[in-house]
């Protein structure tokens, strides 16, 4: 059992309040992803769970045990850093086994556990190398190896893939997901990449300026965002958020509709507009439209469609996929 429970946590650096008052439950064995724009306090929150940063107020429990003031190594957590933070003067084997060595684990057991981790991560041939002799992806695997060897209850990842190129990032994403199902541990993963969040998470936590905006499963956030911020953050290309008369007509402050939920036609529809730019991706076609009343809109149509910049088109938002955000924070869908 390793549910992480954060209750009423506040974090203030000097006079700057980074996290005003945050409560969150991360279920046992879940893969929870913290997302939000840069500087919103994701790393700070993760570091408080790790014990690398003191909380200013509030409490944190892991697996029912209060760890608010415990040392990082006593919390049953392991952390993978954005920069990997490998120990440069140690071999891969020593890097992975270092925590066990400090915990005075018998040598034979350290070796066995390092070998086991190396097996899972395919690090076998690299065990005697130093970090500087490894590629970025290999370094990342060593950092992960260092965390799994301690058999933690909770894994903490702070943007572990952001230093990798796109292809490697996709591959590591799959490997991490597999690792999660293999290890059956609780994982908390920080990223500002919403694709990573959507593809890996059981639970997504969206933050903005230290405040949680919404917590839920990826498709729940996609289908039923609580506010325009969440609506714009999840999904790519971004949801169209329309203000002004079109929204007011439906009694809302903001009307949201996703690019993939707009039907286009050359001769009739609810909104008229002129194509500014078209991207042909093969699997879909993404069009950027300057609409007469609605302003700039993005539209995504499946497959290859013959559209060109300068053409006039008509757009109709699909019924059932329109999000109406009212002034008082309530949402209705139509």
């Amino acid at each position: 059992m390793a549910e992480v429970q954060i209750t009423g946590v506040n974090k203030t650096f000097g006079t700057v309040e980074v996290i005003p008052n945050l409560s969150l439950t991360v279920p046992n064995r879940s893969f929870s992803v913290l997302v939000g724009p840069s500087g919103c306090g994701k790393s700070t929150l993760l570091r408080m769970i790790a014990g690398l940063e003191e909380v200013s107020a509030g409490s944190i429990t892991i697996g029912g045990e209060d760890v608010t003031h415990a040392e990082p190594s006593d919390r049953g957590i392991a952390m993978v850093f954005q920069s990997y933070a490998l120990y440069p003067h140690m071999t891969v084997r020593q890097n992975i086994g270092f925590g066990l060595k400090l915990a005075k684990t018998p040598k034979a057991e350290i070796d066995a556990r390092v070998d086991e981790a190396a097996e899972i991560l395919q690090l076998g041939p690299l065990l005697d190398r130093k970090p500087k002799q490894l590629s970025g992806g290999q370094r990342q695997r060593v950092a992960i190896g260092r965390s799994i060897v301690r058999k933690p209850k909770v894994f903490l990842f702070d943007e572990p893939l952001s230093n990798l190129d796109a292809a490697l990032r996709t591959q590591m994403r799959v490997e991490l997901a597999e690792l999660h199902s293999k290890l059956d541990a609780t994982m908390i993963y920080v990223t500002h990449d919403q694709v990573e969040a959507m593809t890996m998470a059981d639970q997504i936590v969206i933050m903005k300026a230290g405040i949680i905006q919404q917590v839920g499963r990826p498709m729940d956030l996609y289908n039923a965002p609580d506010n325009p911020f969440v609506a714009g953050f999840i999904g790519s290309p971004k949801m169209n958020l329309i203000e002004g008369p079109i929204a007011a007509e439906k009694g809302a402050k903001v009307l949201g509709v996703r690019p993939e939920h707009i039907d286009v036609s050359p001769d009739a529809g609810a909104w008229k507009g002129r194509l500014r730019h078209v991207e042909h991706l093969g699997s879909d076609t993404v069009a950027y439209v300057e609409a007469e009343q609605a302003g700039s809109l993005t539209v995504r149509v499946p497959g290859e469609v013959n559209m060109n910049a300068g053409d006039d088109i008509f757009m109709t938002p699909r019924a059932g996929s329109i999000h109406l955000f009212a002034d008082d924070g309530s949402v209705t869908r139509a």
Partner: peptide, 14 residues
């Protein structure tokens, strides 16, 4: 020296 080095070592119990 990179700060994360110390953070990583602390998590390892150093």
């Amino acid at each position: 020296m990179p700060e994360e080095l110390f953070d990583a070592a602390r998590v390892d119990g150093c």
